[in-house]
Design a protein around this nucleic acid. Structure first.
Lengths: 140, 140
DNA sequence: ATTGAATTCATACTTTCGGGTGAAGGCTTT
DNA sequence: AAAGCCTTCACCCGAAAGTATGAATTCAAT
């Protein structure tokens, strides 16, 4: 931070000196008023560009991709809440037994859900279901 | 495009008129030279800010996430080319038999590869292997 | 109240997956 | 040449996944 301030101060000093120098040259009739105004205009235009850049320099914020559930697809494919839940847990790499435990239902129930899910998603395996689920934004 | 040009032309006309008006007031001694120069400076500073914004307005290009293979992880985990290949096809939702067909080897070979892969990735199922593979950027 | 969808579960059967072990051939490194 | 790794394949076994069918229950909509 310190060196930055120093540089800015120095730049400002140079600028003011230049202005005063021009003012002096104008005073002693060494410079036409048109030239004087022109140079000042150019200087401030450049200063404006620079200051504008400084002030509007927006900080870059990296935002991870936000997941937006595709509810239309869910409805079109007639996927129920439970099936959707099962799909989510599948995508987390859980086995049918683990899913059953997590949802407090029997293994057979999960098998039924997953079978129906595969029919609706038109896939044969859970890996493909997860793939398609992500493509259709049914799961993150 | 047309209205834009019209607006710019109009703005420039106003600007020039203002400058000339100030020049006239200066000429008739109605305005001190300091004020004149100051107003010009402010005007051009603002113009500079505006022009700077216009000119440096970069076009926003949306680039899809680029996949960069994490070769370090591949080496650290001692994953061979063939195993990596198998992992890729797994991630595409293929069964072991389909992978075997695609690589022109036997089903048993793929089983061996996948088993070794699971050991190296420290997972139990292919779904988890795919997950971890993506996390580690071993596969897109 | 009846219909229909969703959820639950069971039984039985087939297929796929995954673990363990062993082994042969090829290729590189020492 | 010997050691070490990769790749290939085989056989066996158990676990997990997936299919098919049928059925009971709940809950919302007609």
């Amino acid at each position: 931070m310190k060196p930055t301030i120093l540089i800015y101060g120095l730049a400002m000093a140079v600028l003011i000196f230049l202005l005063k120098y021009l003012e002096y040259r104008l005073f002693v009739r060494d410079l036409s008023i048109e030239f004087y105004v022109g140079i000042v205009a150019v200087m401030f235009a450049i200063l404006g560009v620079w200051a504008g850049k400084r002030l509007t320099r927006r900080k870059i914020v990296l935002v991870g991709p936000v997941f937006i559930l595709n509810e239309d697809a869910l409805q079109q494919l007639e996927i129920s809440k439970r099936e959707h839940e099962v799909l989510e847990l599948m995508a987390q790499g859980l086995s049918n037994q683990e899913i059953a435990d997590k949802l407090f239902v029997s293994l057979n129930t999960i098998k039924t859900h997953s079978s129906n899910l595969f029919l609706k998603l038109e896939v044969k395996r859970r890996t493909q279901a997860v793939q398609k689920g992500k493509e259709l934004r049914l799961i993150p």
